[in-house]
Amino acid sequence: MSNLTPRDASTRAADTDRIQVAQLLTEAASRGRLALSEYEQRLAKAYAAQTYEDLDRLTEDLPEAADASNRRGASSPAPKTLLLAILSGFERRGRWNVPGRITTFTLFGGGVVDLRYADFTSANVEIHAYSIMGGQTILLPPEINVEVHGVGVMGGFDHDVDGPGTPGAPKVTIRGFSLWGGVGVKRKNRKPNAPESR
């Protein structure tokens, strides 16, 4: 059953609509309703969708779609996030809401920001990553588009993120610097039955 009335089906979808459907698909996959391969196929189609009808086709067989039908256009980005590791570490893994801006800082510490299972709340995400005598890794799923503008001084800042993302998928821009440290940026495939966290 369609989530939209016929007159609304041909309306052009906005970035927020695509993001909401991506979140719905992630929820369905986490409940075991979609296999990993089918989830990733539907996710790519959701990001490329032009109309509500395109999006609706991707979710019409999912029970979660009935609860989401009234949310179109109502999403807002998660609040800005600051992740610090001073003589310690931080990890963001599993399912979590990715804000439009994240700042990470490691000083004699380390960190991991894993976006592979996360729910994007914005079509454009900025990550400001800083490492001083520490290190951090940013893991991206295959469909995400990425630009890296970081600088390493007597350290490293990865720029070699292989392959383009999916047209229409969220774009992550990574800026910052490392001093006697490192910022690693890598694309990594999802694994079936990944741990869920919130």
Results as ranks from 00 to 15, higher is better:
residue 3 N to K: 07
residue 5 T to I: 12
residue 8 D to S: 13
residue 9 A to R: 15
residue 9 A to H: 03
residue 12 R to M: 09
residue 14 A to D: 12
residue 15 D to S: 14
residue 18 R to D: 05
residue 20 Q to E: 14
residue 21 V to C: 07
residue 26 T to W: 01
residue 33 R to T: 02
residue 34 L to H: 08
residue 36 L to G: 08
residue 38 E to A: 09
residue 51 T to Y: 11
residue 51 T to W: 03
residue 56 D to A: 09
residue 58 L to W: 09
residue 60 E to P: 01
residue 61 D to A: 15
residue 65 A to L: 00
residue 66 A to N: 04
residue 67 D to H: 05
residue 67 D to Y: 02
residue 67 D to R: 09
residue 73 G to W: 00
residue 77 P to G: 02
residue 77 P to A: 10
residue 78 A to K: 03
residue 83 L to C: 11
residue 85 A to H: 08
residue 88 S to C: 09
residue 88 S to K: 09
residue 90 F to A: 11
residue 91 E to T: 11
residue 91 E to D: 13
residue 97 N to P: 01
residue 98 V to D: 10
residue 100 G to H: 09
residue 104 T to Y: 10
residue 105 F to P: 05
residue 105 F to T: 13
residue 105 F to I: 08
residue 106 T to N: 13
residue 108 F to M: 14
residue 108 F to C: 12
residue 109 G to N: 11
residue 110 G to M: 04
residue 110 G to T: 05
residue 114 D to N: 01
residue 116 R to I: 04
residue 117 Y to A: 05
residue 122 S to T: 13
residue 125 V to D: 12
residue 125 V to Q: 11
residue 127 I to C: 05
residue 132 I to K: 04
residue 134 G to H: 12
residue 137 T to L: 05
residue 140 L to I: 04
residue 141 P to Y: 06
residue 147 E to M: 09
residue 149 H to I: 00
residue 151 V to Y: 03
residue 151 V to H: 03
residue 152 G to D: 05
residue 153 V to G: 00
residue 154 M to Y: 09
residue 156 G to S: 14
residue 161 V to N: 06
residue 167 P to T: 14
residue 168 G to V: 06
residue 172 V to E: 03
residue 172 V to P: 01
residue 176 G to N: 10
residue 176 G to H: 06
residue 177 F to Y: 15
residue 178 S to Y: 09
residue 188 K to L: 09
residue 189 N to A: 08
residue 191 K to Q: 04
residue 191 K to V: 06
residue 195 P to H: 00
residue 196 E to W: 01
residue 197 S to P: 01
